[in-house]
Amino acid sequence: MLIPANSAPSSELKARPGPFVPAVISIRNREPTAMTLLLDIVTTAAILFIVSAGLLAIFGVLEIVNFAHGAWLTVGAYCAVVTGGLGLNPWLALPLAFVTGAVLGGVTERLIVRPLYARPLDAILATWGLGIVIGQLITLWFGRDVQFTENLLSGTIHVFGANYSLYRIFALAAAAVIGLGFAFLMEGTRLGLSARAIIMNEPLARALGLDTSKIRLVTFMIGTGLTALAGVLLTPLTSVDPTMGVAWLIGSFMLVMVAGSSFGALAIACLVFGGAQVLVSTFISPILGGITVAVLSALVLRISSKGFARV
């Protein structure tokens, strides 16, 4: 009898093979078929994309690496915990997380990030410090134990002759929505136009009368809101505890460095490196799979400092 991949997230995905290995890959007890492998690759890429999108929005426009990224994922996941605790529909966690993330992001931009735009390396450090603070606040509030959340979607779906986790297929759709939403935001709205103007030439944008500090604030809020949203979307795939975000930070950071400021490049990077991660995890070792994204990104950057940004 075939055991469907990823059908029971609570039992198969809660263990992490090391501190830096996000539990994206299903741990199977059967040989993977080509179909499930392919599905693993695209859904892993989708999850990586969801997790990195908020970081990219901030880095792409503001050229600031938000090292508190992991903390925002954690905040989002705890929004799901709170929603569950109140007995609400688990889907309500998504808007709750987006709003919480955006509001906290707004405060952060004003107080911490704004003084450091001219000192990008210091901004990495200050946001890392913020990550520590948020992690400790969550620990003080909820304790350091693993929390359980209600599944957003459970069961499997029959796709192309394979039984596959419905939730992972949903993640694929969610990634597409986020990607297309951003494409629309950047190409089709006034905010996107202003953001692109800032990316290209900030002094000129300011001279033309754009309120760049407001655009920076809004961009940062969208980025952090999106990241918190991603935190909710992660809850069915990984355990929820105060340090869960750190495992995702480095992977998404590397993907964003490779992608530069382009969502298209990020999608490609997620597919290529996510695919490599699935293959290494499946055929060699899940522990080495966990460092695939980081190592390959570093090598790509060493060879071409623009990474995939030219794509």
Binding site: I112, P115, L116, D122, L125, A126, G129, L130, G131, I132, V133, Q136
Partner: peptide
């Protein structure tokens, strides 16, 4: 953590 942020800024 808080002290660190304040210092860096």
């Amino acid at each position: 953590g808080s002290l660190f942020i304040v210092m860096i800024i």
